[in-house]
């Protein structure tokens, strides 16, 4: 039981960190594309396409960057939780960017004009747009988190499924299935679904607290 709890909490902090990290660059990027309109006809379709990229492929690419004799091998983070965080954050970047873009594009037009029409400054446009987009952005981050916590390929390839260190829910399920321990695998699977549902409810509740 202790091992299960350990795996669940590790999954939460790894995927949570990946979501925060991805949001750190994806939301400003989405704002830049929506505000300036630059590269939107190229970047948004590309990101749309990348949402469905297989996680195993991203895992492989991250591996080829961080392996011993690879370009960033010196950083020595392969088979650590940090490698999984980086991989998952790259995985969910297209998802968070494109959905944030759609939320922000509409709000920049609507609230941007409102702020300017009332004599506000460009900086106040940014403040108001982000404020009015908060619920949409929280929902987007929740989707990113759900995608991150449910992926397997990255965690397996760059995490290595090391017990007590990089083992997360999905890699633990894969291991249990390979051992034929189906009951435990199903139990962990249900916990995974439960986490995603609970996070979704917390997100809805947070949005209600923000805006009533």
């Amino acid at each position: 039981m202790y091992e299960f709890i350990d795996v669940v909490f590790r999954s939460l902090w790894i995927s949570g960190s990946a979501t925060l990290l991805a949001s750190l660059w994806s939301i400003p990027l989405a704002y830049y594309i929506a505000y300036t309109g630059r590269f939107k006809n190229f970047l948004i379709p590309v990101f749309d396409a990348l949402i469905g990229v297989p996680t195993i492929l991203i895992g492989l690419l991250i591996y080829m960057v961080f392996c011993n004799h690879c370009i960033l091998g010196i950083v020595d983070i392969l088979y650590t939780p940090y490698a999984i965080i980086i991989g998952e954050s790259i995985l969910i970047t297209p998802l968070i960017t494109t959905i944030s873009y759609r939320v922000l594009e509409k709000n920049i037009k609507t609230y941007g004009e409102l702020v300017l029409s009332l004599g506000g400054s460009e900086k106040q446009v940014v403040d108001t747009v982000l404020h009015e987009s908060l619920t949409g952005l929280i929902a987007t981050m929740t989707m990113g988190f759900s995608r991150a916590i449910g992926e397997l390929g990255i965690a397996l390839i760059v995490g290595g499924n090391i017990k007590g260190y990089t083992r997360v829910i999905t890699t633990a399920i894969a291991l249990l299935v390979s051992r034929g321990e189906l009951e435990e695998a199903v139990f962990l699977g249900l916990i995974l679904v439960l986490i995603v549902v609970i996070i979704s409810f917390i997100s809805r509740y947070a949005r209600k607290i923000v805006w009533g």
Partner: peptide, 11 residues
Amino acid sequence: VYVHEKPVLIR
């Protein structure tokens, strides 16, 4: 100050 024909209110 400009008032839009389809006014926008903030939350």
